[in-house]
Design a protein around this nucleic acid. Structure first.
Length: 566
RNA sequence: GUCUCUGUAGCUUAAUGGAUAGAGUAGCGGUCUUCGGAACCGUUGGUGGAGGUUCGAUUCCUCCCAGAGACACCA
């Protein structure tokens, strides 16, 4: 990575000046007049060294070791030092890229290089909606990014298959107006569950007798009582079939599916132990963690009926997650922000159980809600946007707007939906509008894929006319601006991937790809490639090839497939 | 009430304390008979408010305004 090479040389220069206790930072200047990289280290050292920043910059620049990868070092106004990458280095990176020889920097979240990403998290008996879609897009992308920078990643998915919401649904199903047996197709079954849940929820709120009964059903589910078990198992399986179909559709998969139903017994045991140890305490008939000492909330682990709450079950989940796959350095929970109090508390309790095992290894990656412009989604109001429905809707839009076959439309629809989420930062609450939010033009997946298709169709015309990069030596220092911009963008890719990994932020990759694709399209518009004169032709074809490789790889990192024709 | 998060162009949004706040979309005006127009170019328009720290603030601190969420037996 060029950035690291600059950093190393910069440190050498600083050492020569007797400064060795600072970690200089390298920036990407917004304006290309200020070079490819820059540092403001001279400005920061000005106070410490009690010297004029420009003088410091001057000295650093003099002592900065010159290698062939740097073309020029310049000092500007208040004290910036700007660096220009040499054409030799750019060509070198171009060649590597065309050969699929991506050298991604290693970035590990721990010594074992083993990470768990816990994502998706749909609850059975409920719809898989756009919120889950954002979650699974984010999680899948983070998995792929972390793998690419050298981690072994375990994909896990924690699914709620017990609890009051299921009791409500089963209560609804028992009503005579729903015919469980006659629902044959998966679609019918999922619709049935949905309606039953709405029915159960209404009854729970409006009818005290029904409420009592639902609470009873809830207990029966926990106890796996024969009276309810068949119905529970059958409908649970419907949901799981539906989720599997969903995972397949969005090209995701899991190494381990955890279920809430496998945790209560062990959860209670752990909490009882913690009670003996004094980590948890009794309060009003329940077993709670008193968070006050640690500046945290007090939360219930075992309720007064003796049932484990979500917190209680989390203890058993953590135990499984941290033992089933060997030693894990980091467990990234991809979950919405309203659970941060929950995670702060459970992470603290886990730390008190086993500091070595858990401390600093649990991480709550906050990803935000998808909110409808009209307001919050709620199944009660029936304005939940189901994932399949949404993808189908976008697919129809693509089929109407463009001429392509159904298979391509499917890939483009899934790509559009995922990209629309991933181009935003995970911490941005998305105000969702069906017809505006999933873009199929502008900064969108179809735009990137279209650019890729262009490159493929162009490269196909080459046939056996092989590319030889050694003919490139003639073009140095004669790049057009658009060519130079592209070469620089191409060289940046590994650094962007590293940044996304460090920040757990797929949006860096998305926005980079858009930038690269726009630069390519401008270049494509302005200059002939196949018809260019000899030496230019080689360069331009290599640029085309490298751009294509990066778009494909970059989209892969976002969990998005490409097509060669559309 | 306490705590946490968020306020960027009409709308949707980007920006590790850095240089002229970057895009998409909508609007307006162009390129065009091309190696795929699902393209390209130009243009209008922006950091909620008031202070502070800093050589430098969308970013950090304080207060105010607005919104979201959490704060004991839901998940």
């Amino acid at each position: 990575m060029i950035k690291n090479q600059i950093l190393i040389n910069l440190k050498l220069a600083l050492e020569k000046m007797g400064v060795d206790d600072v970690e200089p930072e390298i920036d990407y200047p917004a304006n290309s007049d200020f070079g490819d990289y820059s540092t403001s280290i001279a400005l920061k050292l000005s106070k410490v060294l009690k010297k004029n920043p420009l003088a410091i910059a001057e000295e650093i620049s003099k002592k900065f070791p010159r290698n062939n990868f740097i073309e020029k070092v310049e000092i500007v106004k208040p004290g910036f030092i700007n660096f220009w990458v040499s054409n030799v280095r750019l060509i070198n990176q171009l060649t590597k890229t065309t050969q699929d020889n991506f050298t991604f920097p290693e970035f590990h979240l721990g010594k074992n290089k083993k990470v768990m990403v816990e994502f998706a998290h749909p609850n059975t008996h409920k719809l898989f909606h756009i919120g889950h879609l954002r979650n699974i897009s984010t999680g899948e992308s983070i998995v792929r990014i972390l793998e690419t920078v050298g981690n072994k990643v375990v994909r896990s998915n924690y699914q709620g298959d017990v609890g009051l919401h299921i009791a409500k649904c089963l209560y609804g199903l028992k009503s005579s107006k729903f015919k469980v047996q006659s629902s044959k197709s998966l679609k019918e079954r999922i619709e049935l569950i949905g309606k039953a849940y709405t029915e159960g929820t209404r009854a729970y709120e409006e009818n005290p007798k029904a409420k009592e009964k639902i609470i009873k059903i809830n207990k029966m589910i926990y106890d796996q009582s024969p009276e309810i078990k068949d119905l529970w198992e059958k409908t649970r399986q419907w949901s799981l079939d539906y989720f599997n179909q969903m995972y397949k559709r969005v090209d995701s998969r899991f190494d381990r599916l955890y279920f809430e139903s496998e945790l209560p017994r062990r959860g209670i045991e752990i909490c009882q132990n913690l009670l003996k140890k004094g980590v948890l305490e009794k309060s009003q008939g329940a077993i709670v963690f008193n968070g006050k000492k640690y500046g945290l909330d007090t939360r219930v682990f075992i309720n007064s009926l003796g049932l484990p709450t979500y917190e209680g079950k989390e203890m058993a989940l953590a135990e499984k997650e941290f033992s089933e796959f060997g030693e894990i350095d980091k467990n990234i929970h991809c979950v919405t922000p309203e659970q941060s109090s929950f995670f702060k508390v459970t992470f603290k309790v886990e730390e008190l159980i086993n500091e070595k095992k858990y401390k600093n290894r649990q991480y709550h990656l906050v990803y935000e809600w998808v909110k409808l412009k009209e307001g919050k989604m709620s199944s009660r109001e029936g304005n939940v946007i189901e994932a399949n429905w949404l993808i189908d809707h976008i697919k129809d839009k693509i089929l109407k707007q463009f001429k392509c076959n159904k298979e391509t439309a499917e890939i483009l629809a899934v790509a559009s939906v995922k990209y629309s989420f991933l181009k935003n930062s995970t911490q941005t609450m998305i105000a969702f509008d069906i017809d505006e939010s999933i873009a199929v033009d502008g900064n969108s997946a179809p735009y990137l894929i279209y650019t890729y298709v262009r490159t493929q169709s162009l490269l196909k015309k080459l046939k056996n006319d092989n590319l030889k990069d050694d003919r490139l030596k003639d073009c140095q220092a004669k790049f057009e601006k658009e060519e130079s911009d592209l070469l620089r963008a191409i060289a940046l890719f590994p650094e962007i991937v590293e940044k996304s990994a460090k920040d757990l932020a797929p949006n860096h990759i998305a926005n980079y790809l858009y930038d690269l694709a726009s630069k390519y399209n401008l270049f494509y518009q302005k200059y002939p490639i196949l018809k260019a004169e000899k030496e230019k032709r080689e360069l331009r074809l290599l640029i085309t090839q490298a751009t294509a490789k990066i778009i494909k790889k970059g989209l892969y990192l976002l969990g998005i497939k490409t097509v060669v024709r559309m």
